[in-house]
């Protein structure tokens, strides 16, 4: 087991991501942040906390999106659907998807499909904590990421919620 980000590093990375997200847009009125269920919840909430510390000018639009019904591997395995809390209209808005690890790209593909059912966003961007660069199965790349790593498919990356650290094993 190898620690990729310690608790302290994770804190700093999240803060940096929050600054990067705000750097591009100083008005958050036209932005909807979307955390992807279930594993993007922890990291997106942390990023939202960090954004809220910096941005005081108005409300921040944030919701969770469950992509279970849009997966392409339904016939192999059923996953338990989780709550979707996306209440803001995304029509004409910029959507920033937030997830923990970008690996094959299939979750993000499903999320893009799911987003369509909530309206037509002006633009969609992707923010992930860990960008696993090898073994991508779809042409999807992150706009913002915490760390980039090169791994083999037998390895696993995990965001450890209790200790707030990212490990590779």
């Amino acid at each position: 087991m190898q620690v990729l980000l310690s608790a302290q590093q994770l804190k700093l990375t999240i803060k940096r991501l929050a600054f990067q997200l705000l750097e591009n847009d100083d008005d958050l009125n036209n932005i909807v942040f979307v955390g992807i269920q279930p594993r993007g919840v922890f990291i997106s909430e942390k990023i939202m906390e960090a954004v809220a510390e910096i941005y005081k000018e108005g409300p921040i639009h944030y919701g969770l999106l469950d992509i279970t019904f849009y997966r392409d591997d339904i016939r192999e395995e059923l996953h338990m659907p989780k709550e979707t809390t996306l209440v803001h209209s995304i029509e004409g808005k910029k959507v920033i998807l937030i997830d923990d690890v970008l690996y094959t790209g299939r979750t993000i593909r499903a999320a893009l499909d799911a987003l369509q059912d909530f309206g037509r966003p002006q633009k969609v961007e992707l923010c992930v904590l860990v960008n696993r660069r090898f073994n991508r199965e779809l042409p999807i790349q992150p706009d913002f990421f915490g760390i980039a790593i090169d791994t083999t498919s037998s390895q696993k990356v995990k965001v450890n919620l209790e200790q707030s650290e990212v490990v590779l094993y």
Partner: peptide, 18 residues
């Protein structure tokens, strides 16, 4: 699971591709 589908039925597009 039905609870999640009930949420889907409240959306503007009440359809999923499953």
């Amino acid at each position: 699971t039905a609870q999640q589908f009930k949420d889907v039925l409240q959306r503007p597009i009440k359809k999923v591709p499953s």
